[in-house]
Design a protein around this nucleic acid. Structure first.
Lengths: 200, 200
DNA sequence: GGGAATCTAGAACACTCATTACAGATGTCG
DNA sequence: CGACATCTGTAATGAGTGTTCTAGATTCCC
């Protein structure tokens, strides 16, 4: 049974939200395998028992951390999707990505890359989860471009699937540029150049 | 003392080159931390003692594996650098990258990404090594573009540093696309679209 | 207040990690 | 053949892994 769900008995004595936030930041920085339960107990300020009761095992905790990351941090893409026109969407996508990657207080790269790219056999579920999320992001991007195609904003000569992969490629590349240590100004100029070459 | 260097005594009984190749492939797939010495002993067909005598500790072995990777696998970039004109260079860069990422027999992504992006405190030297290599690749790219600037092939309106980062971003993005499971045909079309937008 | 339910703390668990010690095997050189 | 140098195989090392057990603390409901 998970901590905090019981109706009677001793209530939990810690901030579940804050603990999960700490776990997320640690996973974000060190990845799934690079983060040990000992590291987590320290960062979350909890004993193993409390963590296991509240969040389940390491992989379950990782999943919750990733979920939180997607909902609270990596929302820049989702926000851009709401832009009314294709041009505004793409401009917002690049601007939000750069802003996200250079926000202080967390690693300058996407959690789906630090989380697990290469990993041991045991951690393949974590790696697959990261890949799955990257693909889902791409699906959302594709749907937005399909909408643009229908509204006539996307020229007929451009294939939606190809354009999706192309934009996705640039966004992913920006994340690596940031991980390499590019400054905010440099990332901005790179994004600006991408926009120019896209015709915006 | 390293195995095989002694003039007298029992000679080594294994193929050092083949063993290092096996280690490289395993590191490439699972990364530095995701690969255990036990995995390596099995894949290399050697006992720990032989590995330590011949290659040093785990990090030294990783460095040798990365060196081999750069010299024998990731030469696609270097090969493209030799192209005489800027256009031929960039076309070759994209074509070689796609060919490299889709070559059977090794993971469909760059070793500098699987090697270590997020990792534990102990493995930060490995991560830094990966970052360093990505940066070095970028330096080589920049020098080629500088040459193009001097020869007049690169329009004056384009900043060399920005263009370097932009191309580097796309190449890195392609590696992630491949890791996501993109097919060879898809990667080719993505590269083709990138070339079109670059004006080629 | 008494019992049941729940949470907390820390030790303990079985296992894997990278690394090394040791003994035996196999070669070269005199 | 004999002395020496080097390599190989196995077992052991101590530290670290994720996870669970146990005892005690704290709260709710009756």
């Amino acid at each position: 049974m998970k901590t905090g769900e019981g109706k009677t008995g001793r209530p939990i004595n810690f901030d579940k939200d804050a603990a999960l936030e700490a776990a997320m930041l640690l996973f974000w920085e060190r990845g799934y395998e690079g983060t040990s339960m000992a590291d987590l107990t320290q960062a979350m300020g909890l004993n193993p028992s409390s963590i296991y009761a509240a969040f389940g095992d390491k992989h379950a905790l990782f999943q919750l951390a990733v979920k939180r990351y997607m909902e609270k941090r990596a929302i820049y893409a989702g926000k851009a999707l709401e832009e009314p026109t294709l041009e505004k969407f793409i401009r917002a996508l690049f601007a939000n990505t750069v802003a996200f990657l250079t926000t202080p207080g967390h690693p300058p790269t996407c959690m789906t890359l630090t989380g697990a790219v290469g990993c041991s056999r045991d951690a393949t579920p974590a790696r697959d989860l990261m890949t799955e999320i990257r693909k889902q992001n791409q699906v959302a991007l594709r749907e937005r471009l399909l909408k643009a195609r229908k509204s006539g904003e996307l020229p007929k000569g451009i294939n939606v699937d190809d354009y999706t992969r192309y934009l996705s490629t640039i966004i992913a590349g920006l994340s690596i540029q940031a991980a390499n240590g590019s400054t905010k100004a440099e990332l901005k100029r790179t994004a600006e150049m991408a926009l120019q070459h896209l015709g915006y």
